[in-house]
């Protein structure tokens, strides 16, 4: 599995460099204004780089498989004597690394600038880590949806594109129905609250862990199904 993961990592290196370059570029353009704008620009950098990223993660999860199919490397990959979970988990692993790295850069550079150049902002390291982990983890939960849809489409020998699109829509409907039930399973979990100081005011916000864990459980099921589908894919 480690050599499969290494191969995926090297294959995705251009995407990783591209994403990191984008974050660094945006920071380079806007952060010099941090001091003048009393921290406002550092917050703006996060708004420029983060909101579109979940959609990008969805597209990346499709592309990581589509590239194999388009370049026919699926013949080499699927000729390996490996169970489907090795292949699926190595791809999820690389996407997880990509997402966690991107979100880290999105938060870390503005965090440094805000704490370094203004006395209006404060955020302790533990809260920063929680914010980073929970944001990245929530984005990562998008990946199994795309992977499931793509691989479900590949087990059919015709209309694969339509089946992929249909299964993604169907999956979202099932997920929305499931969520009411899923939240109840994890309702015993407490909310995670985070505090930071901005412009002299103490801001607190909390995150519903029950929803996140219910989604995680749903994603585990989708990943197991994807591991099965990859072994049944029609080439």
């Amino acid at each position: 599995m480690s050599s499969l993961f290494k191969k995926e990592l090297l294959g995705e290196k251009n995407w990783i460099i591209g994403f990191c370059g984008f974050v660094l570029g945006v920071n380079f353009l806007f952060l010099p204004l941090t001091k003048v704008t009393e921290g406002f620009m550092a917050m703006m950098v996060i708004f420029f780089t983060l909101p579109a990223f979940p959609l990008m993660a969805l597209v990346r999860a499709f592309l990581i498989w589509k590239n194999e199919w388009d370049s026919n490397t699926n013949f080499l990959l699927l000729s390996l004597p490996l169970r489907g979970y090795n292949i699926v988990l190595s791809k999820i692993g690389v996407l997880a690394l990509e997402i966690f790295l991107y979100v880290f850069l999105v938060f870390f550079i503005p965090y440094l600038m805000l704490t370094g150049f203004t006395d209006q902002f404060s955020l302790d390291v533990l809260t920063f880590s929680k914010l980073w982990f929970l944001t990245a983890f929530r984005i990562l939960l998008i990946v199994p949806f795309a992977m499931f849809s793509y691989l479900f489409g590949r087990i059919f020998s015709r209309a694969q594109g339509w089946i992929t699109a249909g299964s993604l829509v169907g999956l979202l409907i099932i997920y929305s129905q499931y969520l009411h039930f899923g939240r109840k399973i994890f309702s015993y979990l407490p909310e995670v609250s985070m505090r930071f100081t901005l412009a002299g005011d103490v801001e607190t916000f909390s995150l519903n862990i029950a929803t996140m864990m219910a989604t995680f459980l749903f994603c585990v099921i989708l990943t197991l199904a994807s591991c099965f589908f990859i072994e049944k894919a029609e080439l």
Binding site: K7, L10, G11, S71, N72, T73, N74, F75, L76, S79
Partner: peptide
């Protein structure tokens, strides 16, 4: 298995 198509990783 030897596939007819080019299945190698070009990078």
């Amino acid at each position: 298995f030897y596939p007819e198509c080019d299945s190698t990783y070009h990078w």
